[in-house]
Design a protein around this nucleic acid. Structure first.
Lengths: 338, 338
DNA sequence: CTGAAAGCGCTTACAG
DNA sequence: CTGAAAGCGCTTACAG
């Protein structure tokens, strides 16, 4: 494997001239010399060492994609299809810009700081929310630009990309109301611990209030985890004397679980219960009936996060921006007019 | 940010003594000195620079996870839930061993070689199959240990982890035969271009032959892509005069598409058509009826790939091993006895 | 057990 | 336009 020295020797120039052609300092090397050097580099498949370069420049062109580990699980969040999709898009966008992406699961902030330092990481994007305390600490301690997805703190200087979650909850609930539903339930993993979920919940409440309705606490299900949680909710709904006519779930998988669970205990969807999900992910098109859901644009989220990060890397003053992405309702077959 | 020099100065020892404590060369530093140095390192949150270390050692503890880009799409394969799951597990396992993981999409081998060189990558794992020609070239040109998932070439020295795809196709078909089915169709993306799919197809044929049956070419669907492809297959089946009584799909999503498509044109599953999928991924539990499918153990695949890679990194003679992982049939509700 | 020197593959001022 | 020297933060022989 040849080094800059070998190339310089063979070209009969100094190491620094080779360095100048690598770095396209056209003003510092004559066209003839450049051509000769480039030919020799090509001939030897010479690739400059990023490790040597970053030792000097304190910059590596590595972006860390941060994946929280918590929530009673040491498993990588990459297993979540949404996370995979988001990281996939981010990787594509960063590759186009000639950045390298390092994927880092972490529980504690110190792990991130260590990696950041040891590799001279140029920037970071946190995918999936962590515990608020951890995220806050990370924002405060990070020494490189950092973009947080799906979480924002008003009192902190930070870069974030979020969804208009309130609008999502509102849109879905309003749609159900317009379809004539008045008995509308809500199922979510953690209404009060997660800001994202809480915003959707507030949207739900606000829509109800607009129709002078109040929530029925029997129909608000907290701690609903994925499909299994949805199925459990369905069983509880089935056994109720007074059932809701519609359910809003904060995740497609939960909505699918509700549908499946209801079908198993003999309710039919949407005749006996209308259901709306959130995200417009793959399951929404798989389930029968196809799921009406609040759609988010994952590619736009990735693009926004990457653009913000690039901006922050080139401009040290760009350290505080909160981008809110729009959501929209996709109507399919899981809701019936009443 | 402190360097080894700062630590050495504050401890009143030489840089090399600090280096020895970092590297746990206990024989080369007295316990008292070590303790003092460690305290100073902790106090300053000192983290040794991997970039400086790898410049010397020619090793970086970075493992590249390679994601092919092809198939008429420049999209990152990470968007595929199976890929996300596999990479998630790999990342978990490598993190435990204190390796860093870099995710690299690539079209051409030269891109991989460049990254390999520029970062002194220690090893690589290719997830998802690429075109055979590209994979062969990669195997031959790679200068670091490389594990290929889901592809093997008998004529090459290589490390690979595959599934017993033939057995998978055979098991599923045999099960259908045992349930009394004789008219069994097959749906796959690319029967002859993909070795994995072809092996499943051969398993299907072999099971048929055991029952002295032949395939009916009307019922073998090639070019079936994901759910949409499955739905298209369903429409064609629905319009047939003589329909198969059962379908085997090489992917859960295809099987789900077949189920959904059939339901839409009025066939009921499994009464009118039995369906078996492959992978036991999330969709198999989402669809109604729940899908009978050939299960693979994605965690075992990740673990095997990582173990092989670790072995190869520590032993230069370990360069040729082909591990075949077992598959099993998970029976649910999408097949009925005839 | 401890240290001084050389060097990994580059880039950054500084001269010419 | 071109080069010689110093240095990035470490480790590796080599001495003592």
């Amino acid at each position: 494997m040849s080094t800059i020295k070998d190339i310089a020797a063979e070209a009969g120039v100094s190491v620094m001239t080779v360095s100048n052609v690598i770095n396209n300092n056209h003003s510092r090397v004559s066209p003839g010399t450049e051509k000769r050097v480039r030919e020799i580099m090509a001939k030897h498949n010479y690739v400059p060492s990023m490790v040597a370069r970053s030792l000097i420049s304190k910059s590596s062109r590595i972006i860390a994609v941060l994946l929280p580990i918590w929530y009673a699980s040491s498993a990588s969040m990459l297993r979540d299809p949404y996370a995979g999709q988001l990281v996939g898009h981010i990787e594509e966008l960063l590759r186009e810009k000639e950045y390298y992406v390092m994927v880092c699961s972490f529980e504690q902030v110190s792990q991130v700081l260590k990696i950041q330092q040891t590799w001279h990481i140029d920037g970071m994007i946190q995918i999936m929310p962590h515990e608020d305390a951890v995220t806050r600490e990370l924002i405060q301690q990070s020494r490189t630009p950092l973009v947080i997805c799906d979480r924002h703190f008003d009192d902190l200087q930070m870069l974030s990309v979020c969804l208009d979650d309130h609008k999502g909850g509102y849109l879905a609930t309003k749609y159900l109301l317009e379809q004539g539903h008045r008995d509308i339930g809500f199922a979510a993993p953690a209404v009060f611990e997660s800001a994202v979920i809480h915003a959707r919940y507030m949207g739900y409440l606000d829509a109800l209030h607009e129709y002078a309705l109040k929530e029925n606490s029997d129909w608000v299900f907290n701690g609903t985890i994925h499909q299994e949680g949805g199925e459990e909710v369905a069983r509880r709904i089935c056994s109720m004397q007074k059932r809701p006519t519609a359910m809003l779930a904060t995740e497609d998988l939960i909505a699918c679980g509700i549908i499946k669970g209801c079908q198993e205990c003999g309710l039919s969807i949407p005749q006996d219960l209308s259901v709306i999900g959130f995200d417009d992910s793959m399951p929404s098109r798989l389930i029968t009936p196809a799921l009406t859901t609040v759609a988010q644009d994952v590619h736009a989220k990735a693009k926004t996060a990457v653009d913000m990060l690039m901006h922050a890397i080139s401009d040290p003053d760009f350290r505080n921006q909160h981008t809110v992405l729009d959501v929209s309702l996709v109507t399919r077959q899981s809701v019936r007019p009443l």
